[in-house]
Amino acid sequence: MNRTMTLRSDSQPWYRERWPWLLMAGPAIVIVAGIVTLWLAVVSNDGLVTDDYYKQGLAVNQRLQRDHKAGGLGLHADIMRSGDKVRLLLGADGQVNLPPAITLKLAHPTRSGLDQAVQMVAEGQGFYSGKLTGELAGRWLVSLEDPAGEWRLHGEWLADTGEPLRLDAKAAN
Rank of each mutant, 00 (worst) to 15 (best):
K131G: 08
V49R: 14
D51T: 14
G113Y: 12
G57V: 08
D115C: 03
Y128G: 04
A70F: 07
G91E: 11
A70W: 03
A101G: 00
E123W: 02
H76N: 09
V118P: 03
H76L: 14
A77L: 02
R111F: 12
A101V: 01
A59E: 07
K69I: 05
G91R: 12
L106T: 04
A117V: 10
M120Q: 04
I79Q: 00
R66A: 12
P100T: 06
G71H: 10
E135M: 14
V96Y: 01
T110V: 15
K55T: 09
D67S: 09
R63M: 13
R111M: 12
Y128L: 03
K85D: 12
L73Q: 01
Q65R: 13
V121Q: 09
Q116Y: 00
H76Y: 11
D67R: 11
D52Y: 14
V142D: 06
Q125H: 02
Q56N: 10
A122G: 02
D115Q: 04
T133L: 13
R66L: 07
D78K: 01
G134L: 07
D51H: 15
T133D: 15
G83H: 01
H108K: 11
F127D: 01
R66K: 15
L88V: 08
T110M: 15
I79V: 09
I102Q: 04
L114S: 01
L141F: 13
L64D: 10
G94V: 14
L114E: 08
R63F: 12
S112P: 03
H76K: 12
Y53I: 15
G94C: 08
L90G: 00
K131N: 07
L89G: 03
G72V: 05
L106D: 01
T110I: 15
G126I: 02
G113C: 10
Q116W: 04
V86D: 03
L88W: 08
L141H: 11
D51W: 14
H68M: 09
S112D: 10
I102L: 01
L75S: 02
Y53C: 10
A92W: 06
W140Y: 04
D52W: 14
Q62F: 00
L114N: 05
L98G: 02
L89I: 09
T103I: 09
H108M: 08
L114F: 09
Q62M: 06
G126R: 03
L98V: 00
L106A: 06
L104W: 03
G134S: 11
T103F: 03
G57S: 11
G113N: 13
T110Q: 15
M80F: 09
R81M: 06
Q125G: 04
T133V: 14
G83D: 05
G126V: 00
Y54C: 05
L104F: 04
G91K: 13
V49M: 13
Y128H: 00
T50P: 07
